[in-house]
């Protein structure tokens, strides 16, 4: 079987298209590359969904934690502590348990126990807590002068937040937020590994790497392939976030633009 044929058969296997049965003997490098790559679709899906939705919740959590309103502050603090203070692994376990209980109470909750929804929700909550903490830290460091200047110009309330506070907060938080995004993508490998069952062998990259390691009894091929894909993914994330960073800081004079140094780490 040529490699192109393999790609046609297994390239979208993780979504359920193409060849139904996974290869079971005479494993080629091409098969391993194709299937593990196919699994990356899920890793990217989980990462993108959680990140996109998490952005809004984390902003809300950061504002909540900084707010004077006691209930909003306490709720945000506890949410962040709970999700940052416990391993994702255990969060998946409890979430799956809870989803199973919901499922048995009403059929409307059925999709919660499948990974595409259930795991995405857990990752969304998890990354919101981490990013919320990052944004909160940035919010605290917004220069006092900026706010005072806005007030002097009569910019207040929602408008001040949207035009002054929020963009500055983003700019300050961006390097750490990039780190969080990288870690979120790494964390997506835990979905099928410790949380949710892979229905009809549709799994993520780690799931297929594990499959090959199990069948060939040789871990030294599939896991480095997995590592290779993740290095590519990480580089892509860094590039995209770098471009956004350029846009966020485009009004600043060249030297004052903070370079994308990925060092302050607020991570998983």
């Amino acid at each position: 079987m040529s490699c192109l044929q393999t790609i046609a058969d297994y390239g979208l296997r993780s979504l359920g298209f193409g060849e139904r049965l996974l290869p079971s003997s005479d494993f080629t490098l091409c098969q391993q590359f194709t299937l593990i790559g196919s699994g990356m679709i899920w890793n990217i899906y989980f990462g993108v969904v959680a990140l996109a939705l998490g952005f809004f919740l984390s902003t809300a959590l950061a504002l909540g934690k900084a707010s004077d309103h006691l209930i909003a502050r306490k709720a945000s603090e506890w949410f962040i502590f709970l999700f940052r203070g416990s391993p994702l692994f255990i969060q998946f376990f409890f979430a799956y348990f809870a989803f199973l209980a919901l499922k048995s109470s009403h059929p409307a909750f059925d999709p919660l126990t499948s990974a595409w929804l259930g795991a995405a929700i857990v990752l969304f909550l998890n990354t919101s807590a981490y990013a919320g903490e990052i944004f909160h830290g940035a919010l605290q460091s917004v220069p006092k002068g900026d706010i005072e200047a806005a007030e002097a110009y009569g910019i207040t309330g929602w408008k001040r937040f949207r035009r002054i506070t929020f963009p500055t907060m983003l700019r300050l938080a961006w390097p750490a937020y990039t780190n969080e995004a990288i870690f979120l993508f790494h964390a997506t490998t835990l979905v099928f590994f410790s949380g949710f069952p892979a229905w009809q062998q549709r799994g993520d990259a780690l799931y297929y790497a594990n499959y090959f390691a199990d069948k060939t009894f040789n871990p030294f091929v599939p896991y480095p392939i997995l590592a290779f894909y993740f290095i590519l993914l990480t580089l892509t994330v860094i590039t995209i976030f770098g471009l956004i960073n350029r846009r966020l800081t485009r009004h600043l004079p060249q030297e004052a633009r903070p370079r994308m140094r990925l060092r302050p780490m607020l991570v998983r």
């Binding site: 990288i182 790494h186 964390a187 490998t189 835990l190 590994f193 780690l206 790497a209 594990n210 390691a213 871990p219 030294f220 896991y223 480095p224 997995l226 590592a227 993740f230 290095i231 990480t234 580089l235």
Partner: peptide, 11 residues
Amino acid sequence: RGVPDIAFFMF
């Protein structure tokens, strides 16, 4: 840093 820790731990 580019690789999930779990992938390292596996082999």
